[in-house]
Design a protein around this nucleic acid. Structure first.
Length: 423
RNA sequence: GGAGAGAUGGCAGAGUGGUUGAAUGCAACUGUCUUGAAAACAGUCGAAGGUGAUGAGCCUUCCGUGGGUUCGAAUCCCUCUCUCUCCGCCA
């Protein structure tokens, strides 16, 4: 949620930036500002009425003590009138505040100045490409066929148990999942992130604070009996750890990492793009989150990018980094970099990580602040990134490392898997 | 699931109708002292909104949530949520 103060002082700039994100309802900005004007006016009137009442109540108390009953009764009658007026004002105020909030919540975050122009994924900018694409023979198998060959995971079985998009990992395939999770968590811990195991279902407040609600309920599984949502990413519970908190400047940044399964309804297309592990409803992911001083958050973002890049290098996967264009960025993000790995048999790039700075968009909802050097409270910046999401990593590993004698496991993973080849 | 108790500032803990946004202690911050630190002493020390210059000051709101009673509520009444203790069930 954007800060109202930003709209107030920079309406023109805000509109320009929203246009860069291809936001369709730019007129909302003006509507909100009109409401804001109205809100403050009513606020003032309400406060004045309440102040009058408070004074009267005090004087009644004094009169009662002096035994001046009649004078007290006169005052009481006066207060009754004020009370009626202030009650009406308060109701009006609540209505206007609510209306303003409803509109404010619909504005996406403003893109950072470095965000490239563009509307579609094709216009994302490749920052760099690294690693060598494997030379696979024409008979190289896509990962779903490799999985079948070595019995690593079974999607049909998942259909029986749940439905499409819920893989059942088996044997060495399951072990590989566990190995990757441990490897990723160890790397994050080495980099100073505190490991947490959060709840995998969250309440409405949490889903609202990180920006999943309102409007994105379609992406999440919902346990309606309790009003809980299955998390689409660990970002939601982990970022909500700091909801409502005020930190000292010296305590920032806070660094958390967490493994979690992620549940996404992903109402969308079916077909070859979503075969195998390319897109599933439940998958595993290790997430890194930082709560940062706003003056340093872009350094933090760089650090997080370097962290993800390092892991991909260790896994020896060819990857590229994209700077997302305005039109392809998420609602909540100010700047996002996507990491894609090359999947040799499918011959396509697969997104395995998305690293973003949300600036104050989430913290404004979370009410997460810190005290700066002048003891003033300021909103923190929140950042997060996948480090990493497993299914497409597995897809790329299987495809790129396939040989006639099985699939070679990257050396860094072998101490976690306990085997060097999948066969 | 049943019975009881409770929810106050970063923490602990007073406060049961009238300058109480809230005693006191601890923590924290600033200063004095000290070669430095500690100790001691003095002071400061919640948040949000409005108004003002993003200052001072002033006003409003907030003592789990939402309602109610009253001229006036942290304090009384109701709702909900959560926590704790005991019992039951259970990985």
């Amino acid at each position: 949620m954007l800060e109202i103060s930003v709209l107030r002082s920079n309406a023109a700039t805000v509109k320009e930036k929203l246009a860069k994100k291809y936001f369709a309802e730019i007129n909302l900005v003006d509507e909100i500002l009109v409401l804001d004007e109205k809100r403050r006016q009513i606020q003032k009137e309400t406060d004045d009425l309440l102040a009058e009442q408070n004074l009267a109540a005090k004087s009644i108390g004094a009169l009662m003590q002096k035994g001046e009953k009649e004078a007290a009764e006169t005052e009481k009658a006066k207060v009754a009138v004020l009370k009626e007026q202030s009650k009406q004002k308060e109701e009006l105020l609540a209505a206007v505040e609510n209306e303003q909030q409803q509109l404010l919540v619909r504005l996406p975050n403003l893109p950072h100045e470095s965000v490239p122009e563009g509307k579609t994924p094709e216009q994302n900018v490749v920052v760099r490409e690294s690693g060598n694409k494997p030379n696979l023979s024409e008979t190289a198998l896509p990962h779903w066929d490799i999985a079948k060959k070595y019995d690593l995971f079974d999607l049909e079985l998942g259909v029986k148990i749940t439905g499409a998009g819920f893989p059942v990992y088996k044997g060495k395939g399951a072990k590989l999942q566990r190995a990757l999770i441990s490897f990723f968590l160890d790397k994050a811990t080495e980099a100073g992130y505190t490991e947490v195991i959060p709840p995998f279902i969250v309440n409405e407040s949490s889903a609202f604070s990180t920006g999943q609600l309102p409007d994105k309920e379609g992406q999440m599984y919902y346990a309606n009996l309790d009003g809980f949502y299955l998390i689409p990413t660990a970002e939601v519970p982990v970022t909500n750890i700091v909801r409502g908190d005020i930190f000292n400047e010296k305590d920032l940044p806070l660094k958390y990492c967490a493994y979690s399964p992620c549940f996404r309804r992903e109402a969308g297309s079916y077909g070859k793009d979503v075969r195998g592990l390319n897109r599933v409803h439940q998958f595993d992911k290790v997430e890194i989150v930082q709560i940062a001083n706003p003056d340093k958050s872009y350094q933090v973002l760089e650090e997080m990018l370097a962290h993800v890049e390092n892991i991909l290098n260790l896994l020896n996967l060819p990857y590229r980094i994209l700077r997302l264009c305005g039109g392809d960025m998420s609602f909540t993000s100010a700047l996002t970099f996507d990491f894609e790995v090359w999947s040799g048999a499918q011959k396509r790039w697969l997104e395995v990580s998305s690293v973003s700075n949300f600036e104050t968009f989430q913290s404004n909802r979370l009410k997460t602040r810190f005290r700066d050097e002048n003891k003033k409270t300021r909103l923190v910046h929140t950042l997060n990134g996948s480090a990493l999401a497993l299914p497409r990593i597995v897809a790329a590993l299987l495809e790129n490392n396939q040989t006639e004698n099985g699939v070679a496991i990257p050396e860094v993973l072998q101490k976690y898997t306990g085997f060097s080849t999948l066969q």
